[in-house]
């Protein structure tokens, strides 16, 4: 049986959605490219982990959420912060360590937070944030809401105790959590095969009686489909899901290490770069006739201007005054 032909309105709406997805992914790419430049110039300090190559995971996932859902992630958090709708200005200012940053410059690259978008932070201890996600799921259930929490993590998290403790409780108590393993193949320089006793790591969910699935993380539509089902399961059945989304990072683990040549070969990197998630989406849209070369150029130019504006804004923002050192250690309130 032939698939039902889409109406003109549906086709237009699909085209608009695809443009939004492409915009979100391209914004992350251009932002991270400038972030690398700022790091080289010494404007960004500390540890800095770029998201280039993984944009379909953040965009595909977060495009399926409602504003009242929650998001929590690791230290590789710039892309997800952007995809969640945090402003490039607030993120760049945070990277520059300035007072207009989303955490007033106190968090830096690894700790993006935004209460307005329920973005519960980038967290720096591998595995440490997974129990927090279970706690947010518990709170949703406690209140009787139909929100969900999405918890991003790298594949190396699955070997930590915190991951297992959290997934057990989420499975046991049926918490509305979507656990997303961004399997980019390497925990720093250690490959999945050298770190995990099993290689189809979504199967770890079997131990917790959890719905589990693997999907292609370079294809934004594959991500949207898998996440959409998981979100639905969380909302309607208050049941958790473990998704392994297979992706690849095109940069080093952080700004401190070589992109290739030590733990992975240049040939491997180049092979994976053939499946650049932005190129895949762009090619598909061009084939559908929903993206012209002019449109792409316009979008790219506009995005570059937005990122430049974020840079200028961050550069102009002052650092916090010294007396702010002691602010936010404690909150001076009780209930």
């Amino acid at each position: 049986m032939a698939a039902k032909k889409k109406s003109e309105a549906e086709t237009n709406s699909d085209a608009a959605r695809d443009m939004e997805l492409l915009h979100s992914m391209l914004l992350q790419r251009r932002f991270e490219e400038r972030c690398a430049e700022a790091y080289a110039l010494g404007k960004v300090g500390g540890f800095c982990h770029l998201y280039i190559g993984q944009e379909a995971v953040s965009t595909g996932t977060l495009s399926m959420l409602r504003p009242d859902d929650y998001v929590i992630t690791t230290y590789r958090d710039h892309g997800q912060a952007l995809a969640r709708g945090m402003t490039p200005r607030s993120i760049m200012a945070e990277l520059f360590g300035r007072q207009d940053g989303c955490a007033r410059g106190k968090g830096g690259s690894m700790h993006m937070f935004d209460a307005n978008t329920n973005f519960l932070g980038g967290h720096g201890i591998v595995g440490g944030h997974v129990p927090l996600a279970a706690g947010v799921g518990f709170a949703i259930k406690y209140r009787g809401g139909d929100q969900c929490i999405v918890c991003f993590m790298g594949e190396s998290v699955v070997n930590t105790g915190a991951f297992h403790e959290a997934l057990n409780m989420a499975g046991l108590w049926k918490l509305p959590c979507v656990f997303i393993i961004e399997n980019n193949r390497y925990g720093m320089g250690t490959s999945l095969e050298r770190a995990s006793a099993i290689h189809d790591i979504y199967e770890r969910g079997a131990a917790y009686n959890m719905t589990r699935q693997q999907c292609d993380g370079q294809d934004v539509f594959a991500v949207r489909k898998a996440v959409g089902e998981a979100v639905e399961r969380a909302r309607k059945e208050q049941s958790p899901t473990l998704l392994e989304i297979r992706t690849y990072r095109f940069m080093g683990h952080s700004m401190s290490d070589a992109v290739s040549g030590t733990y992975r070969t240049k040939a491997e990197l180049e092979e994976y770069m053939k499946r650049d998630p932005i190129t895949l989406l762009r090619t598909r849209m061009e084939a559908n006739g929903t993206l012209s070369a002019d449109q792409l150029t316009q979008m790219d130019t506009a995005i570059k201007a937005v990122v430049q504006d974020a840079w200028d804004f961050a550069d102009a923002s002052p650092e916090l005054p010294l007396e702010a050192l002691y602010e936010d250690v404690y909150v001076d309130t009780t209930t």
Partner: peptide
């Protein structure tokens, strides 16, 4: 599961 439920508490506290 001390690490786990301590973290569940922190997550729940973060959202109210």
């Amino acid at each position: 599961t001390e690490l786990g439920f301590a973290g569940v508490g922190v997550g729940a506290a973060m959202v109210g």
